[in-house]
């Protein structure tokens, strides 16, 4: 082997991964660091940033305490996540379990339930705008039998799962309901995990006289717990990133009266409508810290409820 080819040999791994490395540096590392620097500045995108210390973070704290701006958007996002994630999880597991039953046309049913996940978000958002129309929507057409005044959905500021207005569903509830549309993705993961559960566990349980519910409670759920944990974290991240559907149903404003202003839309409006890129960067970093803390908390708590085959991690 010549000296030249030896050198090439030494560098070839780096050459092979260089496109990815370049992408990582340009598209991830640089924006990551730049946004941290900008969060300590006032920056309107058009002129050079000016250092303002921790002013942006003080503003975040102020708005958080008063429940305005960032505080309001954070609450909206928390509410949306708190309603949509548990319901989506229950729905996805329920569907996966049912679609795992050996029945005629199983493949057809699986395809049917997965199909909605393939509809583009813009199209499904417009569809849901029609479905949840307070006056002419099909959903309220059914609910009219149970409600004297059916929910306002995207036109309402109410929160159906909070104490002041129980069961009076508003814009955030509408968004949470919309999230069921994409439950097929989670369902698919659960379905794969269900197929991975060792049949001998069920056979052993049956020998011990376990019924269908007991098998689900003591075998299926614990065996699915790593996947539930994974989907939970994914769900939180998706809730924080929810943008397209919010933008469409609220005409890009978070209306009515900011009741559907989720944090990603607030960040977008701050950066590109109000031209406060410095403050928007601070919001992004505050969010990063909140998300990291929540994920860390989940990991800590997972020791008590997530069961890995072969023992805990």
């Amino acid at each position: 082997m010549s000296v030249g080819s030896k050198g090439l040999h030494r560098w070839s791994p780096w050459l092979f991964i260089s496109p990815w490395l370049l992408g990582l540096i340009v598209l991830f590392v640089y924006p990551f660091i730049a946004s941290l620097v900008w969060s300590f500045t006032e920056y309107d995108l058009l002129t050079s940033p000016r250092f303002v210390g921790v002013d942006n973070y003080k503003r975040i704290a102020r708005e958080f305490i008063r429940g305005e701006g960032f505080g309001k958007a954070l609450w909206n996002t928390f509410y949306f996540a708190a309603v949509s994630i548990p319901l989506s999880t229950v729905m996805a597991i329920g569907l996966a379990v049912m679609l795992n039953w050996k029945v005629r046309g199983q493949a057809v049913f699986r395809t049917l339930f997965y199909l909605p996940s393939m509809v583009p978000m813009v199209a499904s958002s417009i569809l849901w705008l029609w479905l949840l129309d307070p006056r002419d929507g099909m959903v309220n057409g059914v609910l009219a039998y149970f409600y004297e005044t059916p929910p306002l959905w995207f036109q309402g500021m109410q929160e159906g799962v909070s104490l002041p207005t129980p069961f009076q569903f508003g814009s955030k509830d509408g968004l949470a309901l919309m999230s069921f549309w994409g439950v097929g993705n989670f369902m698919l993961i659960y379905l794969a995990a269900l197929g991975d559960i060792d049949a001998s566990l069920y056979q052993a349980a049956e020998l011990d006289g376990a019924g269908r519910f007991q098998k689900f409670r003591y075998i299926t759920l614990p065996m699915l717990s790593p996947i539930i944990f994974f989907n939970l974290i994914l769900g939180i991240i998706q809730s924080v990133q929810a943008f397209t559907q919010v933008y469409i149903v609220s005409e890009g404003t978070g209306q009515p009266a900011e009741s559907s202003l989720l944090i990603s839309l607030q960040l977008f409006l701050t950066a590109f409508r109000d031209l406060e890129m410095g403050y928007a960067s601070a919001i992004a970093w505050a969010l990063f810290v909140i998300l990291a803390t929540a994920t860390w908390g989940l990991f800590r708590s997972s020791r008590n409820w997530v069961h890995y085959r072969g023992g805990r991690l």
Binding site: M157, Q255, P256, E258, D274
Partner: peptide, 20 residues
């Protein structure tokens, strides 16, 4: 300067008042 947000916030206030 800042009229865009001013416009938005006025509308938000009226929505709060009209839909509640």
């Amino acid at each position: 300067p800042g009229a865009n947000r001013y416009y938005r916030e006025v509308n938000n206030l009226v929505q709060r008042m009209m839909y509640n």
